[in-house]
Design a protein around this nucleic acid. Structure first.
Lengths: 166, 166
DNA sequence: GTTGAAATAACGTAAAC
DNA sequence: GTTTACGTTATTTCAAC
């Protein structure tokens, strides 16, 4: 190796050792585990464990800690995936649409995509009535929306936010 | 009201008052907020605040606490949404497929859907090379998979796990 | 049934090594 | 990475509304 920099400095991606990956795997499962317990699980004492967690937070590898709710128990029984195409694909049109989606709390995810579909949305709502209102009052009201195609979710077979770090 | 039971007991959906919803909104933003601070924000003292949080956990309204990572910083630069249709729609075929998806860490979400599409998948991987391997070695290898259509995500315009509790 | 106050135990955190 | 020490927090108990 003639390079003097480590891989992390060259690529911009921070190098993670086995213990870091172990910490991340655990925190992705249980964000509220006490530091002492986390330290036990990864085979370190609390001090260096806490230093690693703080580093992972500061580097932005750990983006945030969140509580996940049960949608059904809070009255969100309907999930819909929507494919959206825009009339004319201008920078302004894209930005307008994305901004609208960011302002709508029922829109959990919004992705700009390759192919026939311009945007993919994941929308979570109480029922079909609320969804119909969303289609008409929100989506159809955004200038430049040509077409939408809705796929209704019947059953959630898997849902995880955990990235496997192999 | 002639009913002797409260609404929560009748519907199976737990009743949430304004403070509960406030707590849930905060914990969905920051799962690691100290209980003392949470108490301040919702206008209670720590003891009753903690009791409410524990109740929300026990009832399963709070499903879990997780750390969300930055996919790019852990080398997961590619996200793909896949529509899958099965050959014959038998109970066994569905269950086999769903079980395969649950065992694949790169599959973050899997939904059984109405309409032309049988399953929708959200898959997160390092690059297109890894995705090609996933298509050939994983998806195509599952018996009963008739057809797949992949939509590649170019940009994540919005991503949240927070449910708005209006 | 829910809250508030006080006491204890557990934990997070920083320093020195 | 370890040990020690300190301040903060979680958690329980019990009294009050």
């Amino acid at each position: 190796m003639s390079q003097s920099q480590p891989a992390s400095a060259r690529s911009g991606v921070v190098e993670l050792d086995a213990i870091d990956r172990h910490i991340l795997a655990i925190l992705q499962r249980d964000a509220r585990i006490p530091n002492t317990e986390l330290a036990d699980e990864v085979g370190l004492t609390p001090a260096p464990t806490l230093r690693r967690v703080r580093r992972l937070e500061e580097e932005g590898i750990i983006h945030r800690y969140v509580a996940l709710l049960d949608p059904k128990q809070v009255g969100r029984d309907l999930m819909v995936v929507v494919r959206v195409t825009l009339d004319k694909q201008t920078k302004q049109g894209f930005e307008t649409f994305a901004e609208h989606m960011r302002n709508r709390p029922e829109v959990l995810e919004c992705y700009l995509c390759l192919g026939d579909t311009d945007y993919l949305l994941k929308v979570c709502l109480p029922d079909l009535d609320a969804y119909q209102k969303f289609l008409v009052d929100v989506l159809a009201a955004i200038p430049g929306v040509r077409n939408t195609a809705s796929t209704i979710v019947v059953k959630q077979e898997k849902y995880t936010t955990s990235l496997s770090l192999e």
